[in-house]
Design a protein around this nucleic acid. Sequence first.
DNA 1: GTGAAAGCGCTAACAC
DNA 2: GTGTTAGCGCTTTCAC
Lengths: 331, 331
Amino acid sequence: MNVTIKDVAKAANVSVATVSRVLNGSANVSQESAKRVNDAIRELKYSPNFLGRNLRKCGTNRILVIQPSSEHSLYAKIIAGMQEEAEKAGFDIVTAISNGSTASESRQLDMLYNRTVDGAVLLGTSLDKDTINGIAENFNIALCCEGVHGANVLTVVVNDEAGGHDATKALLEKGHRRIAMISVQGDVISSTEREKGYKRALSEYGIEPREDYIWHGDYEYENAALAMKQFMSLEEKPTAVFAVSDNLAAGAIKQASEMGIKVGSELAVIGFDGITWCERFVPSISSVAQPCAEMGRLVAQKLIANMTEDNKDRQQYTLQHKVVLRESTGD
Amino acid sequence: MNVTIKDVAKAANVSVATVSRVLNGSANVSQESAKRVNDAIRELKYSPNFLGRNLRKCGTNRILVIQPSSEHSLYAKIIAGMQEEAEKAGFDIVTAISNGSTASESRQLDMLYNRTVDGAVLLGTSLDKDTINGIAENFNIALCCEGVHGANVLTVVVNDEAGGHDATKALLEKGHRRIAMISVQGDVISSTEREKGYKRALSEYGIEPREDYIWHGDYEYENAALAMKQFMSLEEKPTAVFAVSDNLAAGAIKQASEMGIKVGSELAVIGFDGITWCERFVPSISSVAQPCAEMGRLVAQKLIANMTEDNKDRQQYTLQHKVVLRESTGD
DNA sequence: GTGAAAGCGCTAACAC
DNA sequence: GTGTTAGCGCTTTCAC
């Protein structure tokens, strides 16, 4: 199976240039030659070697997506959107998992430096702004899902502040006044923004945010149990919880059920992201859904455009979230 | 950022051959030259262009994994295992999503034909045995998770028959005698094997399998609800359900809860796969866990070995599953 | 220990 | 419309 363009040329009795022209759909080939070439290709089971093509073209038509985890359906949905858009432009998407480690993420980015891919999309990156800006000087990259302060690159996110606000407001409108929040530690923009929105919604209802109603942990599912234990040990227990992710919301519900608290009637819980398991969970989980497919399509489209543009689009695009109420916030 | 090996050679005042030797860790380079080269590399921020290297080496050190869906944590865990093993051998893993479509899967396999990757692992393929055997004549591929009858390629699976048997036996040992099964339609080996195991376990307890206790649908989560409705409309309702996947088990539990049936006490449910959400679900879901990481490591290791071997290993490896009982089967 | 040079498979500029 | 040829960046003989 080492048939090359030369073999095809010989079999079709034309030059390699003509074969290449047929391969690339050039108009300047006679019907006859084209037919002979195509016959030879079929007969020899020829498939062009992209190693040669890519080297010559200095490009791969391939985009790398680095995701912290592959178990998160949020990312899966975004990647599906990217794939849809990339396909139209003749690009392939390849994915790599960073496990949230900066070292691993840097290593994956080697694919950019060594020309294995033409560009990269970072989902929830752990790189800092200087690193990102440095890369962006020479390569086409984009951030999706999670922005980075001071990073001057193409970014596609939702308005996290507004999402946090709307989630909290939904709980307020259901009559809740003691609303806790499960947030995450550190300088994670999405999370701090959602927290800002939470506080803004509370203040709109004249409620002073209480520090003991805000838990700062990590993104791990297990963390939500700790948060719930703390909340439920308080004198004035919250009647509703806004979790910064659906995974954490699920963890909170799980812990509540173990404490014998009925979620939906005795306690309202709302998450963020809109992952598949929201609908599957018992009870189904209310959530602020991100427009994943749309985010994926947009970031792919803009990134691919940047590859042929001289002045790069380094805008931040903010797409519209949607509050979806399900059983976990009651009727 | 278009610095090539030539630039480095010039800067270090050596030939490109010497730079290449340093790059590839050849012994035949003097300490002095090596130092000068490494300095130049650092100074010029040189990164070798893999397009050139791969073309020359006729290889990419890259393995493609095609998965039907990226939302399935079973696959995610397997891929993580592959990544671990591949890294040791200096290989990268790239993934592509087929959405379960044969056409899409075929298109993804172009990466094999056009030399973008050196080999491929198919997770739950939808290709038939002839196609697979045809590909295997010229390329290094492996099946994982799901075998194909008559496919003579490297395969890593669990013993599905034994798994189905053990799941059913666990229910029998808990005293259940009316055990239903949610299976899938068509010629899916894993599913038909699990069904065989289910029937064997029943017969060991002198129980005749009932056709109205076996549902054949598709893999979609929603399908489990239909199955449950059917089961619960029967005169003699089952007291336990074995679902062929954890997703279906979750769907069954969800439907049960909507029917007001308490899973764990009134109805036992066990799934298959051992996905992350088993533990998170309310109630947590009993399951036949597949040794995902181990499966991934093994398939990667054997596939990489095949790339350098002349006589390919086309064995089927069967790894050990593990029954994990949780809340959904009661105490 | 080092360099010159061939060539991996392909595309595209150029000549006809 | 078609063929000839240079060259993409790299590795690896081969000669010294």
